[in-house]
Each structure stands twice: as C-alpha cells, then as structure tokens.
Simulated assay, not measured.
Amino acid sequence: MANTPQSKKRARQTLRRTEVNKARRSRIRTFVRKVEEAIATGNAEVAREALKTAQPELMRGVTKGIYHKNTAARKMSRLSARVKALSAA
C-alpha cells in the first residue's frame, strides 16, 4: 500500500486517469463498431461515412496515449480495406 504522500497522490491520479482512459477507449470502440456494423449490412455509403467519423477518434486515441500509433494505423488500414472492398463489390 502507498505510504509516502507522493505515492498516495500517484495512486489517486492513477485511479482518475484509468476512468478517463476507460471512457475514451469505450468511445473509440463504439465508433469502430459502427463501421463494422455498416460493413455487415452491406451499405457502402454508410460504411464510408462511419469510417470518416471513426478515423479522427482513433487518431485522438493515439495522441491521448490510449493506443499505440501503429495499432491505430493497423485498425484504420483494415477497416479502410474492408470498406473499399464493399464499395467495389
């Protein structure tokens, strides 16, 4: 358990940051899920629009430290490829 005042404060800050990060991660997952649902329905136009709104959210997750840069890039690449394949079909 935390003994020094500094370690007690760091423990409080960690709890606060954990809650904020959890909310951000959940928000990003919601945007990504909307893209995946649009792909599943087969509607290319809705999928494109959902992808356009999901991309800034993913990148914001990178700047806030939720995701690593390459992780977000990989997710965007895979979603983009699936939307593009849906548009081509």
Rank of each mutant, 00 (worst) to 15 (best):
S26P: 04
A11M: 13
I28A: 03
A23S: 06
A40T: 11
T71F: 02
L58F: 00
K22W: 07
V20G: 08
A11Q: 12
K34G: 10
N21Q: 01
K22N: 13
N70R: 10
V32D: 05
R17Q: 09
T30H: 13
T53R: 15
Q55V: 12
A44M: 03
Y67F: 12
A44T: 06
A44Y: 02
T14V: 11
E37I: 11
Q13W: 09
T71W: 00
K69G: 05
N21C: 03
A54L: 02
A47Y: 00
A38F: 02
T53W: 10
N43F: 02
K64E: 10
T63P: 01
L51R: 00
K22E: 13
A50W: 02
E19S: 13
K64F: 09
R17V: 10
I28E: 05
V35A: 07
V32G: 03
L51N: 05
P56V: 10
G61F: 03
R16C: 00
V46R: 08
A40L: 09
T71H: 06
A40N: 10
G61H: 10
G42M: 01
Q55D: 14
G61N: 06
G42T: 04
E37P: 04
R33V: 09
V62R: 05
G42A: 03
R48N: 10
V35S: 02
I28S: 05
K64P: 01
L15Y: 02
K52T: 15
R12K: 08
Y67A: 03
V62G: 04
Q55W: 05
V32A: 07
Q55N: 11
Y67Q: 05
T30K: 13
R17S: 11
L51Y: 03
V35D: 11
G65A: 12
T30S: 13
E45Q: 11
A11F: 08
T71M: 04
T63N: 10
P56Y: 09
G65H: 04
E19D: 11
R16E: 06
E19L: 15
T41P: 01
E57R: 14
R33D: 13
T53Q: 15
V35R: 01
L15P: 00
G65Y: 09
E36M: 05
Q13K: 14
G65R: 07
Q13H: 11
V20S: 14
K52M: 14
K34C: 08
S26C: 09
R29T: 14
A44P: 06
A38M: 07
V32Q: 06
I39E: 02
E49H: 10
E19V: 14
A38T: 02
F31A: 07
R48M: 09
I66N: 01
A40C: 05
K34M: 13
V20M: 15
I66F: 01
K64N: 08
R33L: 11
E49K: 13
E57Q: 15
E49R: 14
R16Y: 00
T18S: 10
E37D: 13
